[in-house]
């Protein structure tokens, strides 16, 4: 248990803003995308209010791709997982902890940044609430898909670009139900998003752990 906490502390130190990966970049990217949209479609307040929730979801998905490059590859290359393996820390546990750290480093700030983004798009309070709840339910799933994809592509040359490409189709179900919740009067969309997230979070550490073990064999 204390080993898990030690690992979580290290992972958070690496992934949070101020760590090795420039943790605020995805956020700035997220706000920039939300800012670009009104420029592109024009200042039609009604149109923006109607489509803005979807724009925020797309921006969040794209922002979730940015941290993938540094998520697994450098530790795999540096032999950190080998040393952990020798100390009885399984790849699955290391990946489960990294999933938590990845989500903590990226989702809470993203939810916070949704407020200025929503203001830029002129969303109603009701829509903002649905978007926030949807992102809260969906971001664990995005983090899980991102982790698995990052681990799978970590040992490949040009893995970062490939990771982005692989993440998009895998994240489509979350996007469909999460953004779909905006056009439904009940909360079924949110619940389905949460269900998908839960499933992905349960699977991702095993997929990512297997990917790390497979990378040792080549």
């Amino acid at each position: 248990m204390s080993a898990a906490l030690t690992l979580l502390r290290r992972d958070l130190g690496l992934l949070l803003p101020g760590g090795r990966g420039g943790g605020v970049l995805p956020l700035l990217f997220f706000i920039a995308v939300a800012m670009l949209f009104p420029f592109a479609v024009g200042p039609d307040a009604q149109l923006l209010a109607r489509t803005g929730g979807g724009v925020i979801w797309v921006a969040a998905l794209l922002a979730a791709i940015l941290p993938l490059e540094k998520l697994v590859a450098s530790d795999l290359e540096g032999g950190v997982f080998d040393q952990l393996h020798l100390r009885g820390v399984s790849e699955e546990l290391a990946m489960a902890i990294r999933l938590i750290a990845h989500w903590l480093a990226f989702a809470p700030l993203l939810l916070l940044a949704t407020l200025p983004a929503a203001a830029l798009l002129g969303l109603s309070a009701e829509t903002v609430r649905t978007v926030l709840l949807g992102l809260l339910a969906g971001t664990p799933g995005l983090a899980a898909v991102g982790l698995a994809v990052a681990a799978l592509t970590a040992s490949l040359r040009g893995g970062a670009a490939l990771a982005g490409l692989m993440m998009i189709p895998l994240a489509v179900p979350i996007l469909i139900f999460g953004a779909g919740a905006l056009s439904r009067p009940d909360s079924s969309g949110l619940l389905l998003t949460a269900a998908i997230s839960l499933g992905l979070c349960a699977l991702a550490p095993f997929a990512a752990g297997a990917a790390i073990r497979a990378a040792r064999e080549d």
């Binding site: 090795r20 540096g78 032999g79 950190v80 080998d82």
Partner: peptide, 10 residues
Amino acid sequence: LVDERLAMDE
């Protein structure tokens, strides 16, 4: 294990 990879954050 000590090998060519240091496993420390650069």
